[in-house]
Design a protein around this nucleic acid. Structure first.
Lengths: 160, 160
DNA sequence: CGATAATACTTGACATATCAACTAATGTGC
DNA sequence: GCACATTAGTTGATATGTCAAGTATTATCG
């Protein structure tokens, strides 16, 4: 008789009942783990007056370079989807981290660009953000880190 | 020269630049994957008039049995933390899925219990929710499923 | 060319999330 | 038993998320 140890997540959530399946256990564990990491990540950027989503927008716009990106293109590239992209960019514009310009050739389009101030803010955040990721994953071997990413990719491919 | 293939997440987010580190790639992949799964999960429960968080509260209260749980105890057991537990339970009470009662012995405490209607709702959701988890993880081998959970547990332990 | 459709946002309404005060009740030390 | 801290929860202010509907502009088809 092999007594399997109870999943750690059960104790963490003070649950006694086992999960209906391994799949459910994995999903709950995934949610929980991501929540923990996200909160820690928000704590990194929040003192600088922006949310994690706003940080993501800034990074996307930095990557886009001079020309910038159309509003809805930003939305498509967000790690975590946000239907309220207009107001997300509104907030960044109010903070002067992003600027917008109506396109002349196609007046439906609005081009968004990161400002100097936005780039400066990102520059100060690069190291802390990378450090946070390293800290989060520090206990994993290189093999496990690759394995984790590969498994997550498999999950997304299957759900497409 | 081994040409490594670009990480799938890069194409998905239309990014050209590689990540600063494997750790950052893993974190972004984790966020993205969880976002995809969460949205699909919300689509399962939303038609029944509740959010994923509210569903989580109901499951916690079902697990707690007759006596119910004190308000803040629910908050501690949530998979994804919610500081606004009062209003979360408010919403469920308004829908008659949960009932509350001020404790007589310690009048600071409020006991929360799931109602018959709450149990009935959960009963109809059990199968679809389990199905969603199975569907999400269907492409993973049993070994990979265990590996995923184990790696995620390691991450949380390290960040404690 | 003119009607219709499609695109690219924007806005309004409402649900949630977050944080910091605040209230009420209980526990603790002197 | 009284001041003070602690606990349990609530409330207010503000930000963010979400969906549906609306506006302006461009594309398409007969």
């Amino acid at each position: 008789m092999s007594e399997r140890p109870a999943p750690p997540i059960l104790g963490e959530l003070r649950q006694k009942r086992p999960f209906a399946s391994k799949a459910e256990e994995a999903v709950v564990t995934l949610f929980r783990t991501t929540d923990v990491i996200r909160r820690a990540g928000e704590a990194v950027v929040a003192p600088h007056g922006i949310s994690a989503q706003q940080y993501n927008v800034l990074r996307i716009l930095r990557g886009a370079g001079r020309k910038g990106l159309q509003t809805l293109e930003i939305a498509e590239r967000l790690v975590e989807r946000a239907p309220g992209i207009t107001r997300l960019v509104d907030a960044l514009e109010k903070k002067k981290l992003v600027e917008r310009e109506r396109c002349v050739e196609d007046r439906r389009v609005v081009w968004c660009r990161i400002t100097k101030a936005g780039l400066a803010l990102l520059a100060t955040l690069d190291a802390p953000v990378t450090a946070h990721a390293e800290r989060t994953m520090r206990k994993l071997s290189a093999a496990d880190l690759n394995k984790l990413t590969a498994i997550l990719d498999d999950i997304r491919i299957a759900s497409a």
